[in-house]
């Protein structure tokens, strides 16, 4: 399971959906693997605005991979508040591109790095979802459906 995937997962239990504790899910006993994939800078660039950076930071910290992740979303540097910004600021933001080096680093973290065995745990109900051979299993036992 790629680390990118975890940003788009939460607990499957209905009553957990409204709790902020259920997102992101927390890794336990995670066994990491590097699986180099094709690097597509535009793909990574466009995915940035769809990420929950705080959840991503939590995931990185829990896996001991804090160093792989910038402390804030590089896409935020591209955003300029159109109300308050001067012409100059807007132009600078427009010209400002995220360096390929930063994108490559993010690619390594989001796409190349995967959890191959382990568990994802809900911070609200404590339910543990198993990951086996890289595939997370989110089927619930009958009493939790």
């Amino acid at each position: 399971m790629k680390l990118l995937t975890v940003n788009f997962l939460t607990c499957a239990v209905k009553t957990c959906k409204t709790s902020s504790e259920s997102y992101p899910l927390h890794f336990r006993d995670a066994q990491l693997e590097q699986n180099p994939q094709t690097f597509n800078p535009l793909f990574i660039r466009n995915i940035l605005s769809r990420l929950d950076w705080s959840a991503l930071t939590t995931t990185a910290n829990e896996l001991g991979l804090t160093a792989m992740l910038p402390d804030h979303n590089p896409a935020d540097d591209m955003m300029v508040d159109s109300e308050g910004a001067t012409e100059e600021e807007k132009n600078r933001a427009k010209d400002n591109v995220i360096s390929e080096e930063v994108l490559k680093k993010l690619h390594t973290f989001l796409v190349d790095t995967a959890v191959i065995e382990g568990k994802l745990v809900c911070g609200n109900c404590g339910f543990e979802y198993p990951i086996k051979e890289g595939v997370g299993n989110f089927l619930l036992p009958p009493h939790l459906v």
Binding site: M1, F8, L9, T10, K14, V135, F138, V145
Partner: peptide, 17 residues
Amino acid sequence: EPHSAIVADILSLPHPG
């Protein structure tokens, strides 16, 4: 690649809204 596959039920999806 680059997609991900998981096992889940359509009526208990593990995704944020």
